[in-house]
């Protein structure tokens, strides 16, 4: 038996009825188009994903950039601030822009009303109930507080101060940010009855004292020319330092 010949015969017999369909060339082209479309779709989706991944941080930095510069004091910054009820206080230029949005170390943001979001420019945004949310630079407040009104900015001589107040079941909180070249220490931000207790707020020298109205206050210079005074009353008094630590200018 000649195996090779038999094999040839077997192959010929096996494939005798096989023939290419008339539409083979068209089917190949269709297959090619589908492949190209699939590749384009995949590349498109990948490109969109890459752009989205790249755009989110860019958008955040672009969005946060002007805020940072608007908070950066200039030599004439204090005088240039127009009087307005919702102007954010000055912020340090060395601080990254996003630090004003994130909670401070160990602190947690507790908005005064559910569903409220802080304004990225530091000013309070009106909530659904018409109450302003805390500005972005106040990253911690005890629960049960709601804004007593929009933050107020006042100018007095060479100083500009922005004051925000919250009241509620857990007491009251007032945060005041003062900008001015005349600040030479935390003691210059308020009157401290009795003997003020030295402390620190995020590593900066601060003074704390009880007030005659049973409240407690702490003041510190966030940087030269920018001071912060936080006053807490009621149950919030025990959280005074936490609130102070949460002030991120």
């Amino acid at each position: 038996m000649d195996l090779e010949s038999e094999l040839r015969e077997a192959m010929a017999e096996h494939t005798a009825e096989a023939s290419a369909p008339a539409s083979l060339a068209a089917a190949v082209r269709h297959r090619h188009r589908r492949r190209v479309a699939r590749i384009r779709t995949t590349v498109g989706i990948a490109a969109v994903a890459v752009v989205a991944i790249a755009a989110v941080p860019s958008y955040r930095s672009m969005n946060a950039g002007p805020v940072s510069s608007s908070r950066t004091p200039t030599s004439t910054g204090a005088a240039a601030v127009p009087p307005g009820p919702e102007k954010p206080p000055a912020s340090g230029p060395a601080r990254p822009p996003h630090s004003t949005d994130g909670p401070g170390a160990g602190s947690s943001r507790q908005p005064t009303a559910p569903g409220t979001t802080p304004g990225r420019n530091g000013g309070p945004l009106p909530t659904a109930g018409g109450r302003p949310a805390p500005p972005a630079w106040v990253t911690y407040l005890p629960s049960g507080l709601s804004a007593a009104g929009p933050c107020r900015t006042e100018r007095s001589g060479r100083e500009t101060s922005t004051t925000c107040r919250w009241r509620g079941a857990s007491g009251s909180v007032e945060v005041r940010v003062v900008r001015g070249m005349g600040l030479d220490g935390p003691e210059s931000l308020a009157t401290f009855p009795g003997v003020p207790k030295p402390t620190t707020v995020r590593g900066r020298r601060a003074v704390m004292s009880d007030r005659p109205d049973s409240g407690r206050q702490v003041a510190w210079l966030d940087r030269p020319g920018v001071g912060v005074l936080v006053v807490a009353g009621g149950a919030a008094r025990d959280r005074l330092l936490q609130i102070a630590e949460g002030v991120r200018l």
Binding site: T15, A18, S19, A20, P21, L24, A25
Partner: peptide, 8 residues
């Protein structure tokens, strides 16, 4: 031309 041969 060559489709059938290739199919086989």
């Amino acid at each position: 031309e060559r489709g059938t041969a290739l199919t086989r």
